[in-house]
Write a protein that binds this DNA or RNA. Structure first.
Lengths: 251, 251
DNA sequence: CGCCGCCTTGACCACCATCAAGTGGAGTGG
DNA sequence: CCACTCCACTTGATGGTGGTCAAGGCGGCG
């Protein structure tokens, strides 16, 4: 199976074998990170750029009230802090949500890429712009959708993004988050997330249990929350069974 | 007075006089646009990049429910669609909120800038990353703050951004938006925006009337909503009277 | 075995949406 | 100059979504 990082960038530009092998070289020897650790903290100005090779992480801020707001979920193949070199200092923190494997990429490598690998450079630009588009969509979700649709929309998005990096099947994928993580992500209370998940389960749309999400009816789920995948700007979906209702026997 | 566009970019990189005159050349001859018109619509793939020279515009999406969600406010000096060249098609629309003056920048000019003006290129990168940081902060606001603090936080941010582009004084600036615009921006109902503004007024923090925002007590306003300007990544504030409580006689 | 983290459910209440009615200023036309 | 209209703002009444508090269940692990 291709590395998540490369699989994702294929959507951003046409890569050559040369591009691919350079990228593959970068993500050798990732280091393991335990769950719940900060990869970068607010105020840091690290030299290296970090990349999630495996596992789940998040961008977050903590409010005065103690509430933690998650602003992005980082999947395998996602960059942590591509921006910090230009902005000077992190204005938020990044933490692992599950155990992860991470690589730190020194500035010299970034330089090399942007000088000698134009396709890759373009793909990195693309990835950064998609991150921003996702952020905008989350804002729409938070501002305009009720709790159950919020969660449904998040699941639709993660489903596609997971497929892009070759994680999970057409109807299920590992999602090692607690309900509290979901609450912090969607701006809800844990209690209400629990009830909303229950409703989605009763509507036979999804089942979320023990860190695994099973999508019972993808079409219905998408219709329910008005999911339109265009904001992810994917070229073509590898395994997007758009017109085949996937159905899984419940656990 | 310096052009807003240039004033803003000064925060992103050290510009030479040569840089400045090239930029000044770009923003000559803006075209007027009336209030309430789409500059770009979802699905468009325009060649030119548009830049707001004067007035107020917004990024937005419309949900099935009919609700409009504003995802960004574009001030003088802000780009509309720097990203569309790489992403392929707009995943949202941009409309004017007030009468505006706008320039369309052809790709050839962007090419020229990125090839021959490294400082400018860096500054444009910076601007794009700050846009993203603002988006993240809005997400935090929507997810975690009650209505009155949301509005207060927005006002604090706009206050600073307006100062950067030389619009308004230390205690007031033109904000030609309706309460409905604010509602669509903060994910609230018009009625509730109205009540929240009333509360802020009664707390003697701000007065918002007839398209003008007056900040009665900046320190208190910032404290009230927990505003921390670091996410705007400004070098140094030109007129940030941080330790001088500005006070204006009420109208 | 007993603790701990996470999930689950009930009761209660607050924030905020919706519906509805009315005010007031700006522009228009008689 | 005065209706008339339109648009934005304002305020009251009512109800629902979702927050908070509280208690209990369940599985994993030392």
């Amino acid at each position: 199976m291709q590395a998540p990082f490369i699989a994702k960038l294929e959507h951003g530009a046409s890569l050559t074998d040369d591009d691919r092998s350079r990228l593959a070289q970068i993500i050798r020897d990732p280091r393991p990170v335990r769950r719940g650790e900060d990869l970068i903290s607010e105020g840091d100005a690290p030299e290296d750029v970090q990349l999630i090779v495996d596992g789940l992480a998040c961008r977050y801020k903590v409010l005065r009230s103690g509430r933690r707001q998650v602003m992005a979920l980082l999947l395998p193949g996602d960059f942590c802090d591509f921006q910090v070199a230009i902005l000077g200092a992190m204005d938020h923190s990044i933490a692992t949500i599950s155990a992860c494997r991470v690589v730190a990429i020194p500035p010299s490598v970034i330089e090399d890429l942007s000088r000698n690998y134009p396709n890759v450079t373009r793909a990195l630009w693309w990835a950064s712009l998609v991150d921003e588009a996702v952020l905008r969509e989350w804002l729409v979700t938070m501002g305009g959708r009720p709790a159950d649709q919020r969660l449904a929309h998040l699941f639709c998005e993660l489903h596609l993004r997971m497929q892009v990096v070759g994680r999970g099947t057409a109807s299920s994928f590992d999602l090692p988050v607690t309900q509290e993580d979901l609450a912090d992500t969607m701006g809800l209370s844990v209690v209400h997330v629990n009830r909303s998940l229950k409703r989605l389960r009763e509507m036979r749309l999804i089942i979320f249990a023990r860190g695994k999400l099973t999508i019972i009816n993808l079409e219905e789920l998408r219709r329910f929350c008005g999911f339109n995948p265009n904001y992810l700007h994917l070229r073509k979906m590898p395994e997007d069974h758009r017109h085949r209702t996937s159905f899984t026997a419940s656990a």
